[in-house]
């Protein structure tokens, strides 16, 4: 359900027409350019809705169902993700699911890098140890948090044992990619 068919051509956060992907040993980093994002905050006294059937997750966690997912970002605040919905006015879609909440379109506010390991959890955890001051052993599948990474603020979502999403500010995409690539490359030896 594209809400527009503009004749302008978008570019990715890294400034290209196609999403970037690169492998470093067991790790592959992929720019998830198609990810739709919208923030959802409860208004005073509201109880949490279940947009697209998602039970909004508790402190420090994430949930996913089909093409939709959500992670906790603060008290009474979540970020809702939609696979392949970058070209949709996702906040407007979400509005129909949670009409009473404060919603803000965030698809273009962030860039998502999906990191996948071909050798289980260990390479993901080794990468985390080089980048973020978060204990990987206490950050298993379903955990989500926000922290600092090379002087940037990022969301981390442990999508699975062998998968980690790093979501950073869009205007910092180049620096974030560089930081991830340098760390991943150093783990190759």
């Amino acid at each position: 359900m594209l809400d527009h068919v503009t004749d302008l051509t978008p570019i990715t956060a890294l400034g290209a027409t196609a999403a970037r992907a690169e492998s470093f040993g067991a790790l592959t980093v992929t720019e998830n350019a198609g990810l739709g994002l919208a923030s959802l905050a409860l208004r005073k006294g509201q109880s949490a809705p279940q947009p697209f059937g998602l039970p909004l997750p508790g402190v420090g966690t994430a949930v996913s169902m089909g093409d939709y997912a959500a992670f906790w970002t603060g008290r009474d605040q979540w970020m809702v993700e939609a696979t392949g919905k970058a070209e949709v006015n996702f906040a407007a879609m979400l509005k129909s699911e949670a009409p009473e909440c404060s919603l803000t379109e965030q698809t273009d506010g962030f860039t998502a890098f999906e990191i996948a390991s071909s050798q289980g959890a260990a390479p993901i955890e080794a990468l985390m140890r080089k980048l973020v001051n978060i204990d990987p052993k206490a950050f298993g599948p379903g955990q989500a948090t926000r922290t600092g990474l090379e002087h940037m603020t990022v969301f981390l979502i442990r999508r699975a044992d062998d998968r980690l999403a790093v979501i950073g500010m869009r205007t910092l995409a180049g620096s974030l990619w560089h930081a991830l690539a340098v760390a991943a490359r150093r783990l190759e030896d």
Binding site: D3, H4, T6, D7, T9, I11, D108
Partner: peptide, 30 residues
């Protein structure tokens, strides 16, 4: 541009007739 959602503000920093137009960031370049 045939359907791209945007925000338009008629504000001026220069003192001239001026606008600021905002589009989803990935369309800024285009």
């Amino acid at each position: 541009c045939n359907g791209l959602r945007a925000r338009l503000f008629r504000i001026s920093f220069s003192g001239e007739l001026a606008y600021e137009i905002a589009v989803p960031a990935r369309y800024g370049d285009a």
